[in-house]
Every structure is written in structure tokens, then in C-alpha cells.
């Protein structure tokens, strides 16, 4: 049974869980489903939480495990997009200002990343987790985190560069 303190702390982490989930799966309502599952599991597994460790990292691990197991089982979580899918992109997104990318463009670019790279990128670039925390959350050595991270960043940069020129061409 989760204690009242644990529940209170859990409520405080909800905004961050929602952001992490949004980064992982892009879609807002899928992301909130994921957070809902995470909260339910965290409450039943609260006795496994070691209060000496940061709660956020523990919750991220719970959420990430649900995401990965659902993603393996359930096609709805699969990003399944490739760079080729982006070519047919409709110009429904407004022309970019100051060369910033829209949320839709960034989400689509993230969807082209393999999940193993995306989760590392989201944990470190968006959630600002340390390499050590990311390594514990995902359960791989720090060296693996670092190589996935650099590949994810290079891949994303590549996609966004192409998208940037596509957008510019359309605007002209």
C-alpha cells in the first residue's frame, strides 16, 4: 500500500512524467495513457522504491518499461515512420519563424529514430537526466548510453536539416 507521502510526491512528479511520455511517444493522449499506466504500476510497486534514490528517475524507469513492453506488443506505439514517409509531408505546418522547427516537425523527426536511440535522447536532451541515471533507467552501461546518444543526435540533425531545406523551398 502506497503511503500518503509517496502519493503526494507522485502527484508532484506528474508534470514531468507527462513531458517524458510526450517525448517518448509524441501523441498527447497516448502519452497520458502511458502516464496513467505508470502511476497505477508505481502505486502497486511503491514498496520496491528505494527512498535514497531520486523518485523521478525511478518513475521514469517504470514508465519506460511500460512503454518498451507495450511498444513491442502493440503497434500503436510504433513510430514506424521512415525518412521516406516525410517526403510526402503536406505543407500544413506554418512556415517556420527564425528557422525554429514546429512541434509537429520535431515530433515527426523523433518518430524516425529507433526507440533505443529516442529514449536516450529524450532522457538526456529533454529531461536532463545524467548519463548515470539514464544508464540505470534503461539498464545498459554508460558507454552504450553515450554511443546511442551521439547516433540519435546525428540522426536527428540530419533529418531536421533536410526538413529545414524542404520548408524553405516550400516557403519560396
Amino acid at each position: 500500500m502506497a503511503t500518503a507521502n509517496f502519493r503526494n510526491d507522485l502527484v508532484k512528479e506528474l508534470p514531468y512524467l507527462r513531458r517524458f511520455a510526450r517525448g517518448l511517444c509524441g501523441d498527447a493522449s497516448l502519452a497520458d495513457d502511458l502516464v496513467q499506466d505508470c502511476v497505477e504500476r508505481a502505486l502497486t510497486k511503491s514498496h520496491l522504491y528505494d527512498p535514497a534514490r531520486p523518485l523521478r528517475a525511478w518513475l521514469y524507469a517504470v514508465l519506460r518499461n511500460i512503454f518498451v513492453s507495450n511498444w513491442r506488443r502493440n503497434a500503436k506505439f510504433v513510430g514506424a515512420k521512415t525518412v521516406d514517409d516525410l517526403v510526402g509531408f503536406e505543407g500544413s505546418v506554418a512556415p517556420e519563424q527564425d528557422s525554429n522547427f514546429s512541434v509537429a516537425v520535431i515530433t515527426e523527426a523523433l518518430d524516425t529514430l529507433p526507440t533505443q536511440q529516442r529514449e536516450v535522447l529524450v532522457l538526456i536532451s529533454l529531461e536532463e537526466m545524467s548519463y548515470k541515471d539514464a544508464s540505470e533507467i534503461i539498464g545498459v552501461p554508460i558507454g552504450t548510453i553515450m554511443s546511442r546518444l551521439s547516433r540519435a543526435r546525428a540522426h536527428l540533425e540530419n533529418i531536421l536539416e533536410k526538413r529545414g531545406t524542404t520548408v524553405l523551398r516550400r516557403v519560396k
Binding site: 513531458r19 510526450r22 517525448g23 525554429n100 522547427f101 514546429s102 512541434v103 520535431i106 515530433t107 535522447l121 529524450v122 536532451s125 529533454l126 543526435r153 536527428l156 540533425e157 531536421l160
Partner: peptide, 9 residues
């Protein structure tokens, strides 16, 4: 790229 990700989400 980090700042773009944070701006988006």
C-alpha cells in the same frame, strides 16, 4: 538541438 527539443516539449 537540445534547445529545440525543450522548446517543443
Amino acid at each position: 538541438q537540445k534547445s529545440e527539443l525543450r522548446r517543443a516539449f
